[in-house]
């Protein structure tokens, strides 16, 4: 049996947009989707795709990409396919348009994973760059009784277990866990591979499987959010920068040192 890998990938607003393009609609407690800036797959999820493909490079494995959202951009969502993933499954339901609740997302994804027949290895990003929650994959591990390893920078599979180099504050540790396992990965995994021309062609031909909540046998009304979004705003920062100058850059550097001394900071 090939190793059954599922990768979780979320579509997000490009986090690299200029801050001026970032707008909050406070009345409706939502982030304004910036016009003319195409959405992207969450960066850490591209790392997750890369991790799955590295495993697939060395052993028989299938990679299914699973995503839940609305307003999917096929350009964004097909990128993992173009990189080399086999299948794309999208959970789309307008009842969840405004869902920013990790618990709801977790339960929906669990339903989808069950419908897919489970997994040997689930790889996800460490956190989604929109709501920065870092909790969906861990919740899935709990609800599905899988072992769980977070913050991977290298993921290997053999002998029914996953071996992960895991980022810790002092450096990294090597952790082993039995399959089925949930692993989250971080950018330290390295630059994800670029799609090849052949990959892009193949991805164009592939159809995504699209499921609604109904297809998953869950009714949106059972999916009560466990968090309430009470307010959403742009924090105000009022800081004045004192620009230190000089006749040339060297002198500005010297003046900076003198200024810091005067302010008793050094």
């Amino acid at each position: 049996m090939p190793l059954n890998i599922v990768v979780l990938a979320k579509q997000v607003i490009d986090p690299e947009i200029p801050m001026s393009a970032f707008q909050v609609d406070r009345d409706n407690r939502r982030i304004v989707t910036p016009a003319n800036i195409p959405p992207v797959v969450n960066g850490f999820d591209e790392n997750a795709v890369e991790a799955s493909l590295q495993i697939k490079d060395s052993q028989e494995a299938s990679v299914t990409v699973l995503s839940m959202g609305t307003g999917f951009s096929m350009d964004a969502m097909k990128k993992p396919l173009a990189m080399g993933a086999d299948e794309l499954v999208l959970i789309r339901d307008d009842a969840f348009v405004n869902t920013v609740d990790s618990a709801v997302t977790t339960r929906m994804l669990v339903a989808a994973l069950n419908k897919l027949g489970g997994f040997d290895l689930l790889i996800a990003g460490r956190q989604a760059s929109d709501w920065d929650n870092a909790q969906v994959p861990l919740g899935i591990a709990e609800l599905m009784g899988a072992s769980c390893v977070t913050l991977g920078k290298k993921v290997e599979v053999g002998d029914g277990k996953v071996v992960v180099e895991r980022i810790v504050p002092e450096g990294y540790e090597v952790v082993e866990a039995p399959l089925p396992a949930v692993v989250t990965v971080s950018n330290e995994l390295g630059q994800p591979r670029y799609p090849t021309l052949r990959g892009i062609m193949a991805a164009t031909r592939k159809q995504a499987t699209v499921w609604s909540a109904d297809d998953l046998g869950v009714s949106p009304s059972e999916m009560t959010p466990l968090l309430n979004l009470v307010d959403l705003f742009v924090p105000s920062t009022v800081k004045e920068c004192d620009f230190i100058e000089g006749d040339n850059e060297e002198e500005a550097g010297r003046n900076l040192a003198l200024k810091l001394r005067e302010a008793k900071l050094i």
């Binding site: 970032f22 982030i31 709501w131 920065d132 466990l226 968090l227 009470v230 307010d231 742009v234």
Partner: peptide
């Protein structure tokens, strides 16, 4: 109060459970 979108915005949330 929790920063979201990398700190570009702040969300105030409450728990229903």
């Amino acid at each position: 109060n929790r920063p979201v979108y990398g700190g570009n915005a702040m969300a105030t949330v409450s728990c229903t459970s």
